[in-house]
Design a protein around this nucleic acid. Structure first.
Lengths: 218, 218
DNA sequence: GCTAGGTTACTAAGCGCATAGTCAGTCACG
DNA sequence: CGTGACTGACTATGCGCTTAGTAACCTAGC
């Protein structure tokens, strides 16, 4: 029986509170070392619980049973960990709602699909999404700009979908900007209260929000 | 001409960025000294910009041109400042949506009024409301419980209003819990993006959200 | 099979600075 | 001369980050 490399007990179980359980651990880039990906998962949980400024550089590796210095083996700074999380989150949600077949659909189905996908993603990754939304201001200026660009691309996709339905007459003549904002609000605000162990499955909230979006435009 | 008591220039103008301008300064308890109320206004702006943990005890009195120690003349700790802000915010919004004549109205008008009032309040006090929503987790346990109670009262008012319409048949047979949550989301998520100097007045967003709420139940 | 030399994956210790909070003291005003 | 309003100077602790070091493992040569 091999002697364990690491004598100290890992405290990763502490992070397994039900409200911090989601699919965020599967989010990270494959080319990162496994420990780096664990570090991001740990950081996501710390940031989601205490915020970026409320989390210390000891907390993040500490959750993995590693020493404070271990963080700096994989990341140059605490801020770079935050950026990696938020950028990845924004990229993933964008690629999840961007599918080529969407343009072939009629306006109503297109909007339904978009809202359902957006909502389901936020439900499945609500811990990482919470960090992406709430600790946005912890980013430094250059990083902020990168993320802002991704956010604007996302908004544009929703506005276009609403606009398309208004143009072809299948939706009412609604205020496109405001309706798109309201639809995004429903998806984003989910991260404030959603729990995977609650009564609503990701698919159920997704369907519910898609229904609401359709009601908003008719 | 009276020599100014305070030689140092006040930096209160720094807080007058357009996105930090709202009616929060009128929120505080009348029985607090004027300087204490200024301190709360200053703290609201700091917390809204950098979060509770991202704000130092020097920042808050510093915005008023006062020394670091001045904060402790009016408040026992930084955490007590946060609590005063969040508690006051939650109390004020609750008293703003709780009006006796509401029960006399038909279900649709009642819901419209409720949503419009809730939304308008969040628009007018979006800076304080942002702190109330985002720095919620900075509270210690006892304080958290006090605020949670106020939040639950607010939720209940919305759920009852939706339920009433379902019961008397003026609304569709919707999922009351989910619809109420979606309506609250629209009001709360406002604080993430709303600016008083933007294109939407508080009355306009209020009307828009009230319309959306009605669409959700029909 | 055994070891020298190199590599991987971390840690122990701590530096310098920032931060929350304290308290004796000061100063304008009545 | 007292009082209310506030400050200067301070302390103890916590924080982000660095650096030199090391245990465990891998590989090559004999």
């Amino acid at each position: 029986m091999a002697k364990p490399r690491q004598a100290r007990l890992t405290v990763i179980e502490v992070g397994q509170q039900p409200d911090l359980d989601d699919e965020s651990p599967q989010l990270w880039r494959e080319d990162l070392p496994e420990v780096a990906r664990n570090m991001l998962t740990s950081a996501v949980r710390c940031f989601a619980t205490n915020g970026f400024h409320g989390t210390t550089t000891r907390d993040i590796p500490g959750m993995l049973g590693l020493s404070p210095a271990a963080l700096y083996v994989y990341f140059p700074s605490k801020a770079s960990v935050l950026f990696e999380i938020i950028r990845t989150g924004h990229e993933r949600v964008l690629e999840h709602i961007t599918t080529p077949e969407l343009d072939q659909l009629d306006a109503a189905t297109r909007l339904r699909t978009l809202v359902a996908r957006y909502t389901e993603w936020h439900a499945r990754h609500h811990v990482a999404a919470r960090v992406s939304q709430y600790d946005f201001t912890g980013l430094n200026v250059e990083d902020y700009d990168v993320v802002l660009e991704l956010r604007q691309q996302t908004s544009t996709i929703f506005r276009s979908a609403v606009q398309a339905g208004v143009d072809d007459g299948s939706f009412e003549n609604v205020d496109v900007q405001r309706v798109a904002r309201a639809i995004l609000s429903l998806g984003i605000d989910l991260v404030r209260w959603y729990r995977l162990d609650g009564s609503d499955s990701p698919e159920q909230v997704a369907q519910f929000n898609a229904d609401l979006a359709l009601k908003m435009v008719t």
